Amino acid sequence: MGGGRAAVFVTSGQRTSTTGLLAEAAARRGMEVRVLTDGQVLDGLVGRAVHWYGGPLAAGRIANVLGLGLLEPSDDWLARLPEEFTGRRIELTTLSEAWALRRPVFVKPPSAKSFPAAVYADGSRLPRTGEGVGPDTPALVSDVVTFAAEYRLFVLDRRVVAGSRYAVYGRLDTAPLDGDSREREVRRFAERLLASVGESLPSAVTVDVGLAQDPDTGHERWAVVEANMPWFSHSYTARVDAVLDVVLRAAGPRDQLSQGDVPFLHASPASGYI
């Protein structure tokens, strides 16, 4: 694929700070950078070696046309983790089941952004209508946990290559992982996690971890917040060139995927233009 031409870094039309940083880093590497705005742009990319950064809805429409291999963790990955890594009860269910809950819970979609990830007073507060929302919509339901600090880790071949703090007590508060006062603790927890369950993740992935606080005792412990696809993850203040390495692996030509990554291919039910 590509016929010897430069690889292309394609982004959606939605401009974010991460989009701009990654596009600049890709250009410095000699990649052609394109913004996918219409079908004409898409037609010109067919047969090229394309990498993607953007949302899953647009990605699902173009992946088959461009031969993209988009990696993401399985929907039930977090729910299957041992509690030593989650620090809380987590269940993968459906919105219809979650609607019946009568206690405060944190609920989020596993990967798609079909409804807001938030603490809900009970299941009746969850949305019942909207794009991608219905009784069978997957939902991750967990106990409500307070995180004193949360960090996004960009992982390549089971190794943390970049990271950033992104929140303190639930509020946006960014700082590079390198040099952070908790850097050693974060890296130690991540190493233990990846050594234990790394094979259950794609070779390129983002993993969010946080310092969880027990509401009764105040005891703190490190826990996994979630895992996501790098090609739709904010980089915050992580080193952009290392982030780009992860994104390029996670969203590139399907025919270049390793056999180990095939089970983690993002489902692309549709193909066509944006």
Score class of each variant (00 low, 15 high):
residue 129 T to S: 09
residue 116 P to T: 02
residue 140 L to P: 01
residue 105 V to W: 00
residue 95 L to P: 11
residue 126 L to Y: 05
residue 143 D to T: 02
residue 108 K to N: 02
residue 120 Y to H: 08
residue 142 S to L: 02
residue 96 S to R: 14
residue 147 F to Y: 15
residue 138 P to D: 11
residue 117 A to K: 06
residue 95 L to S: 09
residue 148 A to C: 07
residue 127 P to Y: 13
residue 127 P to M: 09
residue 102 R to W: 00
residue 106 F to D: 04
residue 118 A to K: 15
residue 95 L to R: 11
residue 145 V to K: 01
residue 126 L to N: 05
residue 134 G to T: 05
residue 100 A to R: 14
residue 131 E to Q: 14
residue 132 G to H: 04
residue 114 S to W: 11
residue 102 R to M: 07
residue 91 E to T: 15
residue 111 S to W: 11
residue 89 R to M: 01
residue 107 V to P: 01
residue 115 F to E: 07
residue 102 R to C: 12
residue 148 A to R: 15
residue 109 P to Y: 06
residue 148 A to L: 15
residue 136 D to E: 15
residue 81 L to G: 10
residue 129 T to R: 15
residue 144 V to S: 09
residue 131 E to R: 15
residue 139 A to Q: 10
residue 126 L to C: 01
residue 90 I to Q: 04
residue 117 A to Q: 08
residue 129 T to A: 10
residue 124 S to R: 14
residue 91 E to D: 10
residue 134 G to K: 12
residue 85 F to N: 06
residue 111 S to R: 11
residue 136 D to R: 15
residue 147 F to T: 05
residue 91 E to W: 02
residue 137 T to M: 05
residue 147 F to E: 04
residue 119 V to N: 11
residue 126 L to M: 01
residue 114 S to H: 09
residue 100 A to T: 14
residue 116 P to Q: 08
residue 109 P to G: 10
residue 104 P to V: 07
residue 142 S to G: 12
residue 84 E to F: 00
residue 139 A to T: 06
residue 120 Y to S: 07
residue 147 F to M: 06
residue 106 F to T: 02
residue 90 I to M: 06
residue 92 L to A: 05
residue 118 A to E: 15
residue 126 L to D: 01
residue 139 A to M: 06
residue 137 T to F: 10
residue 93 T to N: 13
residue 122 D to P: 13
residue 148 A to M: 04
residue 131 E to S: 10
residue 85 F to R: 10
residue 113 K to G: 12
residue 145 V to I: 13
residue 148 A to T: 08
residue 121 A to C: 03
residue 81 L to C: 03
residue 110 P to Q: 04
residue 114 S to L: 03
residue 84 E to H: 06
residue 132 G to S: 00
residue 127 P to D: 12
residue 113 K to Y: 13
residue 137 T to H: 10
residue 127 P to I: 07
residue 130 G to M: 03
residue 82 P to L: 04
residue 102 R to I: 01
residue 121 A to G: 13
residue 114 S to A: 11
residue 86 T to N: 06
residue 125 R to L: 00
residue 127 P to Q: 13
residue 148 A to F: 01
residue 88 R to C: 09
residue 106 F to G: 02
residue 88 R to L: 11
residue 131 E to W: 12
residue 133 V to M: 08
residue 98 A to Y: 00
residue 112 A to R: 12
residue 142 S to V: 01
residue 148 A to Y: 03
residue 119 V to Y: 07
residue 87 G to N: 06
residue 113 K to M: 14
residue 100 A to G: 05
residue 91 E to Y: 01
residue 84 E to P: 00
residue 135 P to Q: 09
residue 125 R to D: 00
residue 133 V to G: 07
residue 138 P to N: 09
residue 88 R to V: 06
residue 84 E to G: 12
residue 136 D to W: 14
residue 140 L to K: 02
residue 150 E to A: 09
residue 135 P to E: 13
residue 97 E to C: 05
residue 105 V to Y: 00
residue 135 P to S: 14
residue 106 F to I: 01
residue 143 D to F: 00
residue 93 T to I: 07
residue 122 D to G: 13
residue 111 S to M: 12
residue 140 L to E: 13
